[in-house]
Design a protein around this nucleic acid. Structure first.
Lengths: 141, 141
DNA sequence: TATACGACCTACAGCAACTGTAGGTTCAAG
DNA sequence: CTTGAACCTACAGTTGCTGTAGGTCGTATA
């Protein structure tokens, strides 16, 4: 049986985060010692590892909740899981596209920042005057 | 003189967001009508446009506060602005790198998801078993 | 000029996904 | 048996807004 701190270390999670996951129903309420401290088993560790891993892949807690529901019902079609992962991929790709536009704009701003004082600074000028933009980040997500 | 709703429309900001910016001190307290409604001028519009533009470029409100402080003191070196923009660029680039790793992992997961039911699903398997990962997102930011 | 009604006001709660704090209790090593 | 690290609950704070409730204001139209 694992104390919460051990579980935290093994999964790279903060203790408070584990309690938070329990509170929102992502982790089941674990057994307790007589003194009231939580004790976990390997199954809890697996479930938490799954959650953390999915979080690192950028899934929201709601998506993870869906995935856990699916995995608790192994007869359901794989397509359901596929759909969730696909949605996630689309979101990741959209975020990448947006960030790449920002990177281009920032680089351009920095390239043009050659004056000495703030009053002549191109960066501030560009931020002040949107029409100076080359990218279309105004219209983006 | 502009009412808050007009300012909102002109800058693509929600009314509540403008009041929020005022509350946290990013926008100065505007004049009011006798009845207590806010009225803005062109300077307020410029300042808000600056803020929104910087937000769209991914700057945090704290970074924007710094930039506004700098722009209120036009004698200070451009290098200060440059530093902030550079920091922002680094952050954007780190986020891109991280998302690209996630995208690769998600694509790999989806490529291998060819079974029919959840019980055989590679996606869940990959999420369950981190050792199956090719990318190093566990150790990333 | 009266009235309707959209726009405004304040104050506060809620969102994601945690993180941190205060004040107190339990467990386990020495 | 003592010490102190780790645990407990409960709640506030983070970022950057967004939404709601309940009420007031401004102005276009009849």
């Amino acid at each position: 049986m694992l104390a919460i701190g051990t579980l935290a270390k093994r999964t790279g999670t903060k203790v408070q985060t584990i309690r938070y996951y329990e509170q929102i129903g992502l982790l089941p309420e674990p057994g307790r010692t007589e003194g009231g401290q939580r004790r976990y088993d390997e199954e809890d560790l697996d479930r938490l590892a799954f959650i953390r891993h999915a979080r690192q892949l950028g899934f929201t807690l709601e998506a993870i909740r869906e995935l856990l529901d699916l995995s608790d019902n192994p007869g359901r079609p794989c397509a359901d899981v596929d759909r969730i992962a696909h949605r996630q991929l689309k979101e990741v790709e959209a975020r990448i596209a947006r960030l790449e536009a920002l990177r281009a704009e920032l680089k351009r701003m920095l390239r043009e920042c050659s004056r000495d004082t703030v009053s002549d600074c191109r960066v501030l000028e560009v931020l002040r005057d949107h029409s100076a933009c080359l990218s279309d980040h105004e219209t983006g997500a």
